[in-house]
Amino acid sequence: MTFSVVARDPESGELGIAVSSCILAVGRAVPSARPGVGVVAVQARSRRGLGQSLLSDLADGASPADLVRAAAHAAEDVDRQIAVLDATGAVAADTGRGSFPVSGHLLGDAMSVQGNMLASAEVLPAMAQAFGAASGDLADRLLAALTAGQDAGGDLRGRQSAALLVVSGTPATDENDGVRFDLRVDDSGDPVAQLRMLRNLQRAYDERDYDTLALFAPEGARDLYAALAASRRGDRDAARAALEAMRTKPGWAAWLAAMAGDARLSAVSRLLD
């Protein structure tokens, strides 16, 4: 009923999972991750609490292979499909005999793809190949694999939800929770495409790509990002026009006054005079 990819990036050490399914809010059910510990996918008829249990065992020093072997012999987990990846890149997966056909998993270097109730046997090979061929950071490569799986047929029943979860390869701290991406599309006719859009939007926020945000941020904030973009490129007239447009909206004038000292808006106090 679901297809997913788990992987570790050898350069950054980041750990991640991307998943899609024809169920509501797959991001609530399948992916689990803990910074510095590992990533787990629990699919098919897996127990809801299995993911967190596997992560706790990883944190206590168990290997992915041992955890998958134990699950394969547990009566309560006979119908599950799981993949377990630790912070070193060791990975193991298993498809229980109760999983819906077409089903299976493929292991690679610090990577695994798995799925059940798939539209064709080509879904998993397409995902593995796309992941290996993709460039960019781990999130980009995970989404490339997920897209290839969808293009190869994906879930036999159709499309509804998708999720992307990427965490750091080192433990969380008080200053940094270690979560790099936690994006979900809970109900959509094309959830994988929607998930890619969300990833691109988060990239724009992270990289302060104000030109992109001026087009795709929520409508109420677009004038702000237009002003930031114009200020960055030195276009005072365009920045002033965007700020004046914001001033006409209820409640924004006071907020703009408070922004006068923000370094991102060069000479904003003069623009607002």
Score class of each variant (00 low, 15 high):
156 L>T: 11
186 D>F: 14
152 A>T: 05
110 A>Q: 14
209 D>H: 13
98 G>L: 13
114 Q>I: 00
134 A>N: 07
104 G>F: 10
33 A>D: 03
87 A>F: 10
251 G>T: 11
159 R>M: 11
26 V>S: 09
189 G>H: 15
68 V>Q: 02
42 V>R: 03
148 A>V: 09
125 P>C: 10
195 L>C: 03
202 Q>G: 04
135 S>H: 15
144 A>M: 13
181 F>K: 06
196 R>C: 13
15 L>A: 00
256 L>Q: 09
140 D>S: 08
224 L>T: 02
72 A>C: 10
52 Q>T: 13
165 L>P: 00
47 R>V: 09
193 A>P: 07
149 G>Q: 04
35 P>F: 08
199 R>P: 11
53 S>E: 15
39 V>P: 02
132 G>Y: 02
117 M>C: 10
27 G>E: 04
115 G>Q: 14
256 L>R: 05
57 D>A: 06
10 P>R: 09
21 S>A: 15
6 V>S: 01
221 A>Y: 09
262 D>A: 06
224 L>W: 09
56 S>F: 14
8 R>N: 08
188 S>V: 01
32 S>E: 12
259 M>P: 07
182 D>P: 07
107 L>Y: 05
140 D>Q: 10
235 D>K: 08
57 D>P: 01
81 Q>K: 10
159 R>T: 12
19 V>C: 00
205 Y>W: 13
8 R>H: 11
169 G>N: 09
14 E>F: 03
115 G>I: 14
170 T>R: 11
151 D>W: 14
138 L>W: 04
118 L>D: 07
119 A>C: 15
217 A>F: 06
174 D>E: 14
99 S>A: 15
246 M>C: 07
126 A>I: 08
178 G>W: 08
81 Q>Y: 02
251 G>F: 07
95 T>D: 13
232 R>Q: 06
262 D>H: 10
211 D>A: 15
173 T>A: 02
253 A>R: 10
246 M>A: 06
22 C>V: 06
243 L>V: 04
162 A>N: 05
132 G>P: 04
13 G>C: 05
248 T>E: 11
127 M>G: 05
17 I>E: 00
165 L>F: 01
157 R>K: 15
209 D>K: 12
117 M>E: 12
244 E>K: 10
86 D>K: 02
